[in-house]
Design a protein around this nucleic acid. Sequence first.
DNA 1: ACGTGAAATCGAAGCGCTTCGACTGTGTAA
DNA 2: TTACACAGTCGAAGCGCTTCGATTTCACGT
Lengths: 333, 333
Amino acid sequence: MITIKEVARHAGVSMSTVSYVLSGKRSISEETKRRVEESIVALGYHPNAGARALASNRSQVLGLVVPLRSDHNLPVIMQFVASIVASAREHDYDVLLLTKESGPGEAHRVVARSMADAIVVMDVESADPRIPELRTVDAPVVLLGMPDDHQGLSCVDLDFTTAGRQLAGHLADLGHRSIALIGSHPSVYERGTSYAARLLAGFTSEMAKRDLPASVHSCAPGYDAVAACLDEVLHPDRGTTGLVVHNEAILGQLLLELRRRSLDVPGDVSVIALCPDDLAESLPVPLTSIAVPAAELGSIAVEMVMSRLARDHAPEVRLLQPRLTDRGSTRAR
Amino acid sequence: MITIKEVARHAGVSMSTVSYVLSGKRSISEETKRRVEESIVALGYHPNAGARALASNRSQVLGLVVPLRSDHNLPVIMQFVASIVASAREHDYDVLLLTKESGPGEAHRVVARSMADAIVVMDVESADPRIPELRTVDAPVVLLGMPDDHQGLSCVDLDFTTAGRQLAGHLADLGHRSIALIGSHPSVYERGTSYAARLLAGFTSEMAKRDLPASVHSCAPGYDAVAACLDEVLHPDRGTTGLVVHNEAILGQLLLELRRRSLDVPGDVSVIALCPDDLAESLPVPLTSIAVPAAELGSIAVEMVMSRLARDHAPEVRLLQPRLTDRGSTRAR
DNA sequence: ACGTGAAATCGAAGCGCTTCGACTGTGTAA
DNA sequence: TTACACAGTCGAAGCGCTTCGATTTCACGT
């Protein structure tokens, strides 16, 4: 193993000089810097992470708590992870994989052992049981999601409330009077999933504001469940002409089922969704939608970590404003 | 921060004794061990990972290269990851997340810096361009998948060739004469994905052995693509009565499309698949299938890492034998 | 000519842990 | 009884790096 000492000898300088070349924490003459860098390449030197962590009290590692078992919207989860890893690497950080399933004790352990300088937690729910324990972790913690009580923790999320309002508003502005929200699997609501509840709240409040009747349905995946749900939603008594769908898993099935019933989108029914852009684009009928900006949220989470690591910044909450893309699946009536 | 020194003082022993209590590498009297363990709890001691890594030359970390962008069969990928993380933790190892996208240089970096003691690489293809570089990594490397040339590298995978044989054989044994393989997205074959090619080889060789005509189709996801594929496969000229499906993404759509055509499974067509068990079970028609034993493969990969880390074991190749579960979606004719 | 400060470099003291060799006492075989 | 093995413990030497203070040199204003 090549050590900094050997680099120093090879370049004819002291260890500390090599260290300062690497970290840039003190000024070094161009000439010396060049020689040291050449030696580093010549010898194939790689700093030892353990030694560095020990001496500097910084591991350059981010703990990331990933929900590995949650089956719904895996693609979105992957997008988050990809974005977080990429952003972390840009800041010279690596990512240690922790799983939601193994509990918040893992975050503790990893920080207590100085294996990670900060923790990012994905898939945070309204009344997430992990919150109290996360609050006692002795390192910056950034949550993807918005728990009800987020005192002392940084949070990043899409503004689902506003998104719910916008989705309802978009259809209402087009003259739709009877609009239904088709939400996630019932279990998602039972679990108290924050984003689902907030979208629902935004939707109903916008509908109430406009004095329109709001009908709300949750729908399990599976063709039969979707069909049953549509039976209910499209019951003639209701006169539903607009559908807001917040359920990535069933979008394809739903559009198929509408087609099977010879209902044209947007001719007969307007459909608008909240889902990743690539999904919205690749469906049988491209959907007007609000995207979950996973990549952006991930990189913002990392930025928050870094700024809290740099200065001893206070925790902050950032809600990204939704962005609606019109793909022609809604029409005025 | 509580250090081992403070624990030693609190327990009235030397640092080395505490260390030996923790590692068990020398015998310690019951009495002393008890006192030390009490002190550890009383003070809330957590060993510093960096110091430990520096002194012992072991990071207790596993680098895991995950394909974050590969959109197909995310659920399977997640199962692998979950199983690997869980198995690693059982051996007191943590997992550092590396992405396939950022290249094999990352594996190098992480090992050269002693951030990881070994590397596990997922989603390895037949002629994987990463192989040569992985071979030069100065730590055990275990591949999930079977590249053509795996000299010097450990590999774990399902025996897809045998699986292909078994799938064909199962239908042939039931008296089906015209059997079609519906494979993955064409791009999967173009990429030279090892498992797809091996399954295909097994399938065709079994069909040849039995002197039956083998028809092979690859199919993109999407309802129209599936319908088009079925048009071709079920063309009356062919008289196809058995379907082997190796394409998780389209299974649901395929069964729906069969239903739409009023074709009963297994009454009119027998269908057998290679897919995760939970998928096979949750489809509109539960499918007789061979499972991808992701959890098992993951934990075997970790075991291989550990044994190569312990003794300086030679790389080995393990192909898991396929296990076929009958769920009644095939019938004799 | 002289003090001053900035730039450039060095030396050495740790960071917290593991591990090796040495030491002490006890039980056991000769 | 002597010798010896062995369980149990300690002290100290690192592991490879960062960082602080000290030192040297040189340009500058006065």
